[in-house]
Nucleic acid binder design. Sequence first.
DNA 1: AACCCGGGGAC
DNA 2: GTCCCAGGGTT
Length: 313
Amino acid sequence: MTALAPTEISSPDLHVALNAWFRREARDLPWRRAGFGAWGILVSEFMLQQTPVARVIPRLEDWLERWPTPDALAAVPASEAVRAWATLGYPRRALWLHAAAVQISERHGGVVPHDVDALLELTGIGDYTARAVAAFAYGHRHPVVDTNTRRVIARSVAGQGEPLPPARTRDLEAMEALLPRAETEAAVFNAATMELGAVVCTARNPHCDVCPIRNSCAWRAAGYPVYDGPRKAVQKKFEGSDRQVRGLIMAELRSTHRPVTDAEITGLWDDAPQRERAIAGLLADGLAVAVGQRRTSEPGRTGESGRGYVLPD
DNA sequence: AACCCGGGGAC
DNA sequence: GTCCCAGGGTT
């Protein structure tokens, strides 16, 4: 056997300083409380996919009070999940979380799986969320890589101001190389790296003066070189976008239990082709269901309360 | 790999 | 106005 694994050569005990800092200064977030539970952590991870912590916390607490277990959520229609999701954004996540609850209820006896592969089988759970649940809910040793992790590694290890575009295998291997052996320390290190990226090693205006690992930071050692790699595409403007139209229609669907009519949707947005794209997209995603249509008349629904669109059952 | 998908807040 | 946010699914 070789005397030293590459990880021990390239990054001597980054986790020691980072974990000590985390244990001392980590934010007191709901999902970090002792005994929060795997279901709560899974729900938090769904909500945290592209929605900031501060906006998630109140929705999460309401959600878990109402549906304290996967079985509880699985027992209600998806429409209730979509309403409770409110304006967290990307409402497909509410649909996927509901679907995951049904799958957990049916396939796993109502217990959130421990296994990364089993977690990956659940709707709406990808590489990040599967490992986050396995590590944070069950303490298993897996590399957990989110946008913060990638930025912290890019700077502290690679010496670059920003990470390259996400690349699953490379990113997981980079984190694996830094991960301490012991399960508990590994789970803390995953959380600590994310925490550092969230509060110190931020995308804009990082607080390097208070960074717990600045003495071993490759970016600092290199003199904080400006990033010169490929730039992220400029994101499309939200104002006037198809996404805004979808959002307006979803808000209308959430606001009532009766079908939203075409006339009402027309009143939400002037551009007809955009309205039609939005409706078609919502139908394709399963976020809206057409009811009372003449051609596809369902005996149970036709004539019930008019034509239009409702949230899915 | 590129694109789509909300909404809000910091700068 | 621009950028960012504990990403994932589809093509």
